[in-house]
Every structure is written in structure tokens, then in C-alpha cells.
Amino acid sequence: MPRLPDRRAVVMGGFAGLAAAPALAATQRFDAVLSAGPDRRATRHFPTLAAALEAAPADSGKAFRILVPKGTWREQVTVTRPNVHLVGEGQGASVIVFNEYAAGRNRPGGPSEIATVTVLAPGFQAHRLTIANDFDYPGNMPAEVDYDRTGASGAQATALKLGKGSDKAYFEDVALTGWQDTLFTDAGRSLFRRCYVSGCVDFIYGMGVAVFDRCEIRSRTRPGKDFHGFIAAPDTNRKQPYGLVFLDCRLTRDGDMPDHTMALGRPWRHTMTFPDGRYGNPDAVGHTAFIRCWMDRHIVPEAWYPMHYNLKGGRRAMYQPEDARLFEYASRGPGAGKPSERRRQLTANQARKYTIPSLLSGWNPA
């Protein structure tokens, strides 16, 4: 059985080897700082991130900048005010972490969300920090079922959720670490620039438009298993041209992950409530594209796998990759593989449309 990571490796997701960011300029001023006492770098100080978020203006068009100093801030928070910017002192130095998970969400007194940070307002930004969910996934892996080698539900533990109300969310030099369902892009537009995202099962998922620009996408080993999961699980509406798009990214793996044991993704058809019952959303036709990405040999040759979903009346069906919008262009590295009916390739003309302004409907933060 592969070696279990220690607690710090769970939080940090194996990204400690990335270069440290330069120190913040001493002259920078913030609207708030997380501190037990006064700090000359900000006008106000707060003992918790939740308290600092509560102090943000409810309707301001200006950025409300919160300094998250070096250290581990164990909190579960929801951002409801617009234009909140979290700034850390380094990706590996400033860590916001919690351990909520799907099977524990309905316990008495428990929160309704499983994400460490949930964003429900526009203009959110995060820089130079980590948002993590350190739920003990290796110790609580669900048993395999006949329709899913990664098990039934229960072990989802999200680090970041971009929910209803989120739009124009920007992340730079941020690490998002977890195992299953690390990053939930459920709404709006988001851009991740030079970030690090780690996980194993469906760890980047949702119906929002999310662009990953020069990021490292790290696949984590499920201890004792011979298959380790799926990177992307798009739930894109059929009327929406783009979903999860990876531009010039690096797809890496844990050192003990064998070759050909991780899929690029699978299409998700989220179960929803309709007037005639609960079943998989028929308007979900997932879109994911990997453009000019380097891939290690952990990627399976066929690249994409099907995913189960519920039909009307409770029956289960499999959503095939060929029925969704899953593409590559100019993949490089030992995991690039050969084009096929399942591993579909964009043409050069099609790939030219995949620019950040086009993908994000004209929004392109500096």
C-alpha cells in the first residue's frame, strides 16, 4: 500500500516545492488584517477571517483588501460582500483550512456548505495563499460500486466553492488543496492564474466558466487503489459555449501514482429537482478543453470516462464522453496520447478562439 501522507502534506497537497513568492512590500496598506492586536499594515485588525469579512461594505464598488498573515487560519467562511480581496504572505505561508465533508454536513449544528471558503458575491480575489480542505479522505474512502470505481458519495470535501452570485472571481498564486471535489465552480466567471490545484476524484467541477492559465493541476494518489480518479467534471449548460478550460497548464502527479491511472475527466449531469421529479439535468452538456497542456504519464490513454446520472423514475444511466463537449489541442508530454473518437482534438482554427477575453465574455483582469 502506498505511504499515507502526513497531516501537513494533506493540507499543502504536495506543492511545497513551488517557488516562494517575494515578501509583501512594507509600504502596502490594507483595509483589514487578521491579527490579535493592532498592525501597522492595516487600518483595522480582526481576530478571525469571518469577522473581517463581516466588516466589508455591503455595496461598495471599491476593493476591500484583507491581509491574511503567515500562519494557519482554521475557519469555514462565506463571502457575501462584493469586491473582497484576500492577500496572503505566500502560497505556502498563509493557509485557510477546514475539514467539512459531505457525509458530515447534516449533523446537528453543522453548516449547510462543505466548502472551506464559499463565495456568493462578485469581484472576489485571492492572492498568494492556500485554501484547503484537510478532511481525512484516505481514512474514509468510500467503497467501490458497480457504476463507479471511486465509490459512492460521502467523501466530498470542497476547499473553494464559487456559488450563486459569484462572478469575475480572480485568483493568482493561490493553492487549492483537497482530495475529492476540491474546487466547485458552480456559477459565474473565474480566472485562475499561476495557481496550484490538487485532488483525486472530480476535483475541478461545476457549471461555471473557469479558466486556468499556466496552472499546475496535481493528481493525488488514493492509497491502496489501482485507479485514482478524474481531474474535471463539467456540468456546463448546453447554451453556454465554455466551461472548464485549461490553458498552458501542467498536469502532474504524486510520486507514488502509477502510469495510466487518472482520467482527464468525465461529464457530470447534476441531479436536480424538476416539476416532474428529481433526475439528472438534461441541459447539462459538459464542456472542458485542455489547450497546449503538458501531461505526465498518469493520464489514461483514452483520456475521458463516462459518468452515471439519474433518469426520471430513479433508473441510472451512463453519460458517455462522446455525448459531451470534451476536447484537447496540442497536448504535450508522455500523457498526451493519440487522438481518437473519444480523445477528440480541436483544429487550429477552433483553438484560436480559446483566448481569455473570449472565454470570459470580454472580462480580462490585468
Rank of each mutant, 00 (worst) to 15 (best):
S153F: 14
E100T: 10
G154N: 12
V79I: 12
R149L: 13
G109F: 08
F98G: 06
V97A: 07
E144Q: 15
N83T: 06
N106I: 09
G110L: 11
V119D: 00
T78K: 12
P142V: 03
A157C: 08
I114E: 01
D134Y: 04
F135M: 05
T78G: 10
A152K: 15
I114P: 02
L129C: 07
A115S: 14
F135K: 00
A155Q: 04
T118P: 04
V97P: 01
A155D: 09
D148L: 11
G110A: 15
D146H: 10
A121V: 06
T158H: 03
V145T: 15
G92A: 12
T116E: 02
G110P: 04
P111L: 09
D134N: 14
D134E: 14
D146I: 12
N140F: 07
S112G: 14
R105H: 11
Y147I: 11
A143T: 11
F124S: 02
S153A: 11
A143M: 11
I96A: 02
V79Y: 02
N140W: 09
T158K: 02
D146N: 12
Y101P: 02
D148S: 15
V79S: 03
F98Y: 12
V79D: 03
H85S: 12
T116I: 05
G123Y: 03
V95T: 05
Y137N: 08
E113C: 09
Y137K: 08
Q91R: 15
D134S: 13
V84L: 07
T130P: 10
P138A: 07
I96E: 01
G90R: 05
G88F: 02
G110N: 11
Q125A: 14
F135R: 03
A93W: 11
L86N: 00
P108C: 10
I114G: 02
M141H: 11
H127A: 13
I96G: 01
A126L: 07
P122C: 08
A155Y: 02
N106T: 12
V117Q: 03
V84R: 02
M141P: 04
F124K: 03
E113H: 14
G123A: 08
A115C: 07
T130E: 10
R128I: 08
T118Q: 11
V84D: 00
A102P: 00
E100H: 12
A132G: 13
G110S: 13
R128E: 06
R105P: 01
T116C: 04
A155C: 08
A121S: 14
A155K: 00
A152S: 13
G90F: 04
P108L: 11
S94E: 03
I114Y: 00
T116A: 04
H127D: 12
G139I: 07
G92L: 07
G151W: 09
H127W: 15
V84N: 01
A103C: 04
I114C: 00
T158L: 01
S94L: 05
D134G: 05
T78E: 14
A93H: 13
L120A: 05
A157E: 00
E89C: 07
A102Y: 15
A103E: 08
H85N: 07
P142T: 09
P82N: 09
L86H: 05
L120I: 00
G88W: 00
A126N: 03
L120M: 10
P138M: 08
P108V: 09
R149P: 04
N83V: 07
A132E: 03
R107H: 12
S153V: 09
R149E: 09
